[in-house]
């Protein structure tokens, strides 16, 4: 057979190199590379990935971080005794999530938790959301470790976030808090849709260690919190 008789392939079926843009279900092009390239503020989540299960561009919020968006992305986190507040303004189509843990033995003013809340609300307001039309869903505050229950960290966190949102007059329309389970939370900031999965107790110690490592107090330090300039 002469080579000229071989069937001609007009175009490769898929890009031959793996460096091309990822394609999600329905032919949508993943924007993960673009999201990664954008500059981020201190404390803003920056772990972007294409979520296979949801076929969505996603970002993982680590302890102490937050993420706010007006794009149709998935915001995800995994919680032990920490709280994730998912807040959105359906009118402005802007929403976000934080992930905080009150440090123990602090002065009790709850300023680290309220700092995490304020960062989230401020960034949303900057993107056009209004406090009056915000709604919240809260997750976490679990007593994930045996013996950890006596300290009531999850309970204190839950009480704090409920009090805070009530003071801010932001209605809590749904919640999955307390109990003993670690949780995986998926939040769609534009629509306010949230999904929570209660996880098995595989390695609760590891989760607790991770939550301790990145609490909001450390974040405050990294963002020059508490600094004073007199002009």
């Amino acid at each position: 057979m002469k080579t000229s008789e071989l069937p001609v392939r007009a175009a490769p079926l898929r890009p031959l190199t793996s460096g091309g843009p990822k394609v999600l279900a329905g032919g949508r092009i993943s924007r993960v590379d673009e999201l990664r390239a954008q500059p981020r503020k201190p404390g803003e989540a920056s772990f972007f990935y294409a979520d296979h299960h949801f076929q969505y561009d996603a970002v993982k919020v680590l302890p102490g971080e937050y993420f706010v968006s007006g794009d149709d992305v998935l915001i995800m986190t995994v919680l032990g005794s920490c709280i994730a507040a998912c807040v959105w303004d359906g009118k402005a189509r802007v929403g976000g999530m934080n992930h905080f843990m009150l440090p123990e033995g602090e002065d009790g003013s709850g300023r680290y938790g309220s700092y995490a809340m304020e960062l989230l609300l401020n960034e949303m307001i900057k993107m056009g959301a209004r406090r009056e039309t915000m709604q919240a869903k809260i997750f976490g505050g679990g007593a994930v470790m045996a013996g950890f229950t006596t300290m009531n960290v999850g309970e204190r966190n839950t009480k704090f976030v409920l009090d805070y949102l009530s003071t801010e007059r932001i209605p809590v329309v749904s919640q999955d808090v307390l109990d003993i389970h670690p949780r995986k939370v998926c939040f769609f900031p534009v629509t306010g849709k949230a999904l929570v999965k209660r996880l098995a107790h595989a390695h609760p110690e590891a989760l607790v260690v991770e939550e301790r490592k990145g609490n909001a107090a450390a974040l405050a330090k990294s963002t020059a919190g508490g600094s004073v300039d007199l002009f």
């Binding site: 002065d107 300023r111 700092y115 919190g225 508490g226 600094s227 004073v228 300039d229 007199l230 002009f231």
Partner: peptide, 20 residues
């Protein structure tokens, strides 16, 4: 503005600056 304080604030530090 006279000064710029970054949140979260330490109550004692805030009072110190105000006094100043």
């Amino acid at each position: 503005a006279t000064g710029w304080l970054v949140k979260p604030f330490d109550p004692a530090r805030l009072l110190e600056v105000i006094k100043k």
